[in-house]
Computed example of a mutant assay.
Amino acid sequence: MTDPSGQVRSAERPDEAGHDENGTLSEDQAVLIDEVIDASHTTASGFRVVHDENRGTYDAIVGDREVAGLTYSTTGDDRIVLLGTSVLPEFRKQGVATALIRHVLDDVRAQGKTVTILCAIVRTFIEHNPEYADLIDVKHPGVTQRRPHSS
């Protein structure tokens, strides 16, 4: 995502899977995990998704403001490595993360590619939306299960 000064910043994640050194999720990540688990009550609307291949991001834009992003890297073998998801605090619990992840996975499917998941939020989304499980690269799945978050 881009911060207010215009600087590009990576998704908020202590390591590639979004866990701290003890294997637990940050509070910010736990909020997004809860959103994708309980997506039934929130439906995001009023934003568009911009895919910036040069930066390796899919960004959710409201008006002219970037409110969420999903970072990725590419490999040479038709595989996309999903690195991290972030949503500005005031846009959390509104379904933005869920809708953004769904958009990214639909785009990956349309491109005929597979994914390696290093983002715990995307992993949780797929666990709760198994119709996307076929996109996970069999040889390089990434994070294989969601880790519990600290209370």
Rank of each mutant, 00 (worst) to 15 (best):
G69M: 10
L82R: 00
I136W: 12
R109F: 13
R92T: 06
T71I: 01
H128E: 13
G63R: 08
D106I: 13
A133R: 15
E127D: 12
T98E: 01
L88R: 00
V96D: 01
G69T: 03
V96H: 03
L82H: 07
H128C: 07
L70F: 02
R92E: 11
L118I: 07
V108S: 11
N129G: 07
V81M: 07
D137K: 12
D64C: 01
L70G: 05
N129Q: 12
V67N: 04
Y72I: 05
G69P: 04
R92H: 01
V108N: 07
R79Y: 04
I61E: 09
A133F: 11
T75C: 06
D134V: 06
V96N: 01
V62W: 09
E66L: 06
I80R: 10
E131R: 12
H103R: 11
T116A: 15
T71D: 09
L118F: 15
T85G: 03
F91R: 01
L83W: 09
P130I: 02
T74Q: 10
I80T: 10
A133V: 12
L70A: 06
S86E: 03
Y72E: 01
K93C: 08
E66Q: 10
P89T: 06
I136A: 10
G69R: 09
E127Y: 03
C119M: 13
F91E: 09
V138L: 12
R102Q: 14
T74H: 12
H128K: 14
I101V: 09
D64T: 08
A99M: 03
L88G: 00
L100R: 04
T124C: 14
R92Q: 15
L118D: 09
G84N: 05
S86F: 05
K93L: 04
G84K: 02
L83I: 11
V138W: 13
I101F: 09
R65T: 11
E127T: 14
E127G: 10
T85F: 00
D64V: 03
L70Y: 04
V122K: 11
T74N: 12
S73Q: 12
E127I: 02
A99P: 08
P130N: 05
D106R: 14
P130E: 12
L70I: 04
D106E: 15
S73W: 07
E66N: 01
Y132I: 07
G112K: 13
T98K: 01
N129I: 11
L82W: 00
F125M: 11
I61K: 02
A68I: 07
T75F: 08
Q111N: 13
Q94R: 00
R92P: 00
V81S: 04
G95P: 02
H128N: 15
E66V: 11
L82E: 05
V81K: 12
I126C: 06
G69K: 05
K93P: 00
Q94W: 00
E90H: 02
A97R: 02
E131G: 13
Y132H: 13
V81N: 10
R123A: 09
L105Q: 09
S86K: 00
A99R: 11
K93V: 03
V96F: 08
R123V: 13
Y72K: 02
R65E: 15
D77Q: 15
Y72G: 01
D106G: 08
H103K: 13
R123M: 11
G112M: 13
I101R: 05
